[in-house]
Each structure stands twice: as structure tokens, then as C-alpha cells.
Simulated scan of single mutants.
Amino acid sequence: MTASQHTIAGTVITMPVQIRKANQHMAMFSVDADAAQHLIDYSGLQVCRYLPGRTIVVLMLMHYIDGDLGQYYEFGTSVMVNPPGSNASGPRALQSAGAFIHHLPVDQAFTLEAGTKIWGYPKVMADFTIREGREFGFDCTVDGQLVIGMDFRRGLPISLTPRQSAQRSYSHRDGITRETAFEHTLDGVRTRLGGVRVRLGDHPYAKELASLGLPKRALLSSSADQVQMTFGDAQELP
């Protein structure tokens, strides 16, 4: 079977897209399910209610260092959703849930074009300020307005071996909802309960995060020093 290809800014990208080296910082929050559903109603998907009236939102900063789309920073807001047609609920429903990508600012034009054309991700141009030191932190601004600032306390090592997993993400663009399968391997993972401070700015994205009750204490936060990923083509959902 011939691999599919996409031409982005004059460069041919052959699927699947490979990310050979990246690192990440993420935080997981329990938020009001109805508020999250209202935020993503446009997608046609249903939030995963892992507890009565609650769903999970993940905020994540990725630094892509070596990959088919170049080097860039990316901030994502994702809401855990049920697969299409599923009404599963309860903690075990999270095992089959996927991540609906609601925000995805990036700081490079090539990955913006690739992300929107190949997968329908909601990528927009942004600027990032990175703070290294005893704590890792960043600010994300779009159109000169602060979206979010996050500062992470260092977690504890949780595994001595890389963790591999296969997941699904969902996106909605131009009236079409898409599903994308991807695989990732995490190494050098550290995690802790809470462990992150969140500051929201004045950008409309920040107001959407505030509608979910943020800033608030995270359920947990984590970092991964070495991330490898493989992305397939997006599949349009009926």
C-alpha cells in the first residue's frame, strides 16, 4: 500500500509523520462536564463523564526538537471525549476516551500549515516565553494577549522504562470532525499531585479556560524528558 503524501509549503510530507525527539509538560484538571460540553458542542462529540458531572481537561506544552515538522513549541487544551456513538461513563470510560483538541497555538508557520491541512487541528500562531530553573514555566501569548502562564514543580520519577501507548485525538475544522490515531513513547517521566500554578490572561482563549473553573488545583502534573510520536492520517467522521 502506497503511503499518503501531503505538500506543505513546497515540502512533501510522507505519512506517517515521525517525531523523533520532544519533551512535554502537562497538567490534568477535573472540571464541570456541562461547561466543557458547552465549549466543544460544535464538534458533535460528547465529553467523557468519568465522575457524575465531571470530565477531564488536559493542558500541555510540547517542545518538538527533532521531527518531520521541524522544531517548535505548542500549547494544547484537550477535553477527554467518548468515541463517537459511545455513552460510556465512570472511571473506566477514560480507558477508551480520546482527546478532543480545542486550542493548539504554535510558534512556527510550517507546523501551523501542516496541522491545519493534514489533521484539521486548530493551530494558530503564538509566542512563547520559556522559564528554566528550579521550576519550569512558560507563557503563551496570541496576538499580543496572554493566553496562559504555567509554572511546574519538579515531580518524582515514576518509571525506569519507557512507556508506550496508542491513542486517538479528535479535531473539528471547516464543519468536519476528524479522528487521528497516534502512538507515543515517553521516557524520563516525572509526576506529582497538583504541582502547577496557572495564570490566565485576557485573550479569548483564556476566558474559555476560565469558563471551566480555571485556574484551580490540578489533579496531577507531569513532565517527560524524551518523547517520540507517530501520527497517521486523519479520518473524517460521518
Score class of each variant (00 low, 15 high):
237 L>N: 05
198 V>W: 01
63 H>V: 07
226 Q>I: 12
9 A>S: 14
70 G>H: 08
94 L>S: 05
113 E>S: 14
152 F>N: 05
184 H>L: 15
217 R>Q: 12
91 P>L: 15
27 A>S: 15
234 A>Y: 00
219 L>E: 08
181 A>D: 06
137 G>W: 01
64 Y>W: 08
164 Q>W: 12
170 Y>M: 05
7 T>A: 07
43 S>K: 09
213 G>D: 03
121 Y>V: 10
129 T>N: 14
186 L>S: 08
159 S>D: 10
130 I>M: 13
144 G>C: 10
134 R>K: 13
156 L>E: 11
166 A>R: 12
76 G>R: 12
213 G>I: 09
66 D>F: 01
36 A>M: 08
192 R>A: 09
11 T>G: 00
211 S>C: 03
58 V>S: 10
3 A>E: 06
130 I>H: 07
172 H>M: 03
84 P>C: 07
234 A>N: 02
208 E>Y: 00
94 L>N: 07
137 G>F: 04
107 D>L: 10
189 V>R: 09
4 S>R: 14
2 T>P: 15
226 Q>H: 13
107 D>S: 06
4 S>H: 06
15 M>D: 03
117 K>L: 10
115 G>P: 07
33 A>Y: 01
39 L>H: 02
202 D>F: 02
18 Q>D: 05
51 L>W: 06
200 L>D: 00
188 G>E: 09
195 G>Y: 05
184 H>R: 15
28 M>G: 04
114 A>D: 01
103 H>L: 15
201 G>W: 08
178 R>G: 02
